[in-house]
Design a protein around this nucleic acid. Sequence first.
DNA 1: ACCTGAACACCGTTCAAGT
DNA 2: ACCTGAACACCGTTCAAGT
Lengths: 213, 213
Amino acid sequence: MSRATLTRDTIVDTTIRIIAEQGTEGFTMRSLGQALGTDPTAVYRHFRDKAELLRAVSERLLGTVTVDLPADAGWRPVTVEVCRRLRSALLNQPQLATALQFGPPLQPTEFAITETLLRQFRLAGLEQGAAALAYHSVIELTVGSAAIDAALHSLSSRERSQQYFRWRSVYATLDPAEYPETVGASAHMYRGTADERFVHALEALLDGIVPSP
Amino acid sequence: MSRATLTRDTIVDTTIRIIAEQGTEGFTMRSLGQALGTDPTAVYRHFRDKAELLRAVSERLLGTVTVDLPADAGWRPVTVEVCRRLRSALLNQPQLATALQFGPPLQPTEFAITETLLRQFRLAGLEQGAAALAYHSVIELTVGSAAIDAALHSLSSRERSQQYFRWRSVYATLDPAEYPETVGASAHMYRGTADERFVHALEALLDGIVPSP
DNA sequence: ACCTGAACACCGTTCAAGT
DNA sequence: ACCTGAACACCGTTCAAGT
């Protein structure tokens, strides 16, 4: 398709598009070669291996997380915004949310995320040690939310709603003698969007980290 | 090694052992066949495919999460214990924490986890809708903590500590002009064990979900 | 009834050969 | 300097053949 000379940027662009359209498992070096209109092995001129390519992809995706943040919104809205963007970026590359990465050795954009979040917690009045713990806490929640939602991310919002509906039905039809609470709460499970549930969880976590006066 | 006739239980046992020793990527149907002393394809007599085998593995691992819980410890210690056990089980099968699964269609042991957690939140005084949201919140945090820690899980505790030390050093040697908060908090990052950090985050989340009176 | 082993359709990656 | 394409060492899985 894309007919220009092969560059790292072109390759990263195409990789992101393939993963968005076909999911992680649909992306292979051969499918990438076909989308680029080159031999599959031509990519190895620009990236040492598949892992380095995916690292470049994550660098690109995470680069959007800390740009153009509202300047004077206060620590809490900024924290929520950064975490929502991070979750969204992770959804676009399940391999990232999944494991392996996270934790240094990181890339420049990941340092920017760490710095931004730590700064918000310091602005909220936390000491350095408490800010570090708070940072680990929100990262764990964000990664988990993305990992759970990743499987449904390639679905349309309509299909996603149907899937949630189906899951509620599964809970609703369990044996009420054995699973009374699950049956009772079944209508409330998987309610709203995954992003809304994530924000709710994040707000509760922030309430616990920085109790309001 | 194991010389008995092939059964589903034997196969699941051996799979868990291989994943524990060599990690997820070290487990292949061929390595499984070798460990069982059979042809690699013999397993297909007992499991439709690799996915069904891994589902049986997760069923086995998650089966330990809700057994023998302290009867009268109160909702909060029980919640923490269930989440810690769940996290530990997920660490033993990174594929589970990773994605794809979670969310129905689930297996019996997963329903037991859902029921137990919902029950604790009801005991804590939450309405059904609030209990469902609380359930989603703690699951997200638990899965995320396991996913982040999965990469280091096959290391010895000594190697793990060294890794954390190395990561702190990375943060400490960043440019303090660009990353002042990260450099300042570097000594506090990745402090203690991953389990301790997880419990800290979980306690904060529970504080936010059920404010103390 | 259960296991074997050749075979198939894939992977990521290497490397000599082309232009 | 960059790309090609055959080839290698793997995968998961199928299926006819063995016992």
